[in-house]
Design a protein around this nucleic acid. Structure first.
Length: 123
RNA sequence: UCAGCAAGCCGGCUUACCGCUUCGCUAUUGGCGGGGAGGAAAGUCCGGGCAACUUCAGGAAGCAUACCCCGGGAAACCGGGGGGUUUGGCAGAAAGUGCCAAAUACAGAUAGUGCCACAGAAAACAGGUAGCUCUGCUAUAGGCGGGGUGAUAGUGAAAAGGCGGGGUAAGAGCCCACCGCCCCGGUGGUAAGCAUCGGGGGCACGGAAAACCUUAUGCGUUGAAAGGUCAAAUAUAUCCUGGCUUUGAAUUUCCUGAUUCAACUCCGACUUGCCUCGGAUGCCGGGAUGGGUAGACCGAUUGAUCACGCCCGAAAGGCGUGACCAGAUAAAUGGUAAGCCUUCCGCGUGUUGCGGGAGACAGAACCCGGCUUACAGGCUUGCGUUAUAA
């Protein structure tokens, strides 16, 4: 089994869980993302992630789709770097106004993993 | 040779690696195989299917449609033909007189209400600024008044039918011919607010219906977040059932237990008990049922579908045979790399080439049919044989 898989169970789904993440999670900015994290309370196999782009900044559905797919791809290829951490619920919200390219997203996403580690150690 | 115009179609391709989603088979959360965005998936502007609500009928409101005929279609709407109007071109001495082409939100302004800027004296019950003309007074340079006049000038998008003649003081549909307009009738035509002919009416009737509105015809409302099924945890209601029937004070250092004292709701039964039995009420527990939240599933992918063949036709269509062709739900259909194709820029230049960049508009969300809007580039067919250049 490859380490680069991201099936449904790895994504954050369900209205209640998402509400809980945004109500109780702690958030920080790391351009071009705003990131919200919360330790998973139940018993789940792994981390659960959610990617979002504001409709206000990108009116076309194609642009939003593209950004979300890039973020998802970057996370998928690098997720093994945070396997050792306790299980988290994470939301990545894209806040920049321009269409990014894949390398930038990937770079910043890896940086964000360090911040996640800090978050885990503090709490 | 070619710009251009119209209609239709396509709208990047291939491979490797890593993934997502769905279906099937294996098998146990893996492997193998198949499917996986559009012509507009968009805007949500029309018309339906489907669903719930309402359901006895009618009205109002609102929305849609609006010359005529034929064809297609479930309807919206589409195709073809005939006409009206407007615009442009050509012809012509001229006249919308003829021809050609294009456009057309072509019912009603004679049902009603309101509006018509600026300019202009006056803009819809008309109107006298200049001018023309008759006339009174003064008076003979002229001036000041009264009346008539919509023919002339000026303003304007528009000056209240046009033009010619008669007529008149000057004028005027005041009268007449022709044209226009309105009404009635005949003829042609399937028909048209169509064409044409005849009669009548002096004309009463300016524009805009994209201001409101009126007429005719059609339409119940809502919209998949519709609607339906299953249903954890927690709380609760009803029913069944098991257990306990209570509280306070005193005695002992405390806990447990015991003893004593005081209070201890209601109903029924009898073998009438200083409290026996049963029930209500209360507390604790178990079970069932109900509504119902999270969540899951159905709705939901077989349809006015697609492909091929045949038939009618100008086209839109009809019949037969075969096929199953996305089904996600905080929402899959992707990422990276290489090559090819198209195109642009730079270098080089007889060509091949080398380097770099770009590849439109845009993402299904219950499903169909239309309309509208966006769209790099390419292909096919038809028109165009002309301007310009060689």
């Amino acid at each position: 089994m490859s380490a680069h898989r991201l099936p449904k169970s790895g994504r954050l789904r369900g209205q209640k869980k998402i509400q809980e993440l945004f109500n109780r999670g702690s958030s920080f900015y790391l351009q071009p993302f705003r990131i919200v994290v919360l330790k998973t309370s139940g018993t789940v196999a792994g981390h659960q992630v959610l990617f979002s782009v504001s409709k206000r900044d990108f009116k076309k559905a194609t642009s939003r789709n593209r950004i979300k797919r890039l973020m998802k791809e970057a996370y998928r290829l690098n997720q093994s770097k945070i396997n050792s951490l306790p299980k988290l619920q994470i939301a990545y919200i894209y806040t920049a106004k321009e269409l990014p390219d894949f390398n930038l997203i990937q770079e910043r996403l890896i940086e964000s993993f360090d911040r996640l580690k800090q978050y885990v150690e503090k709490s």
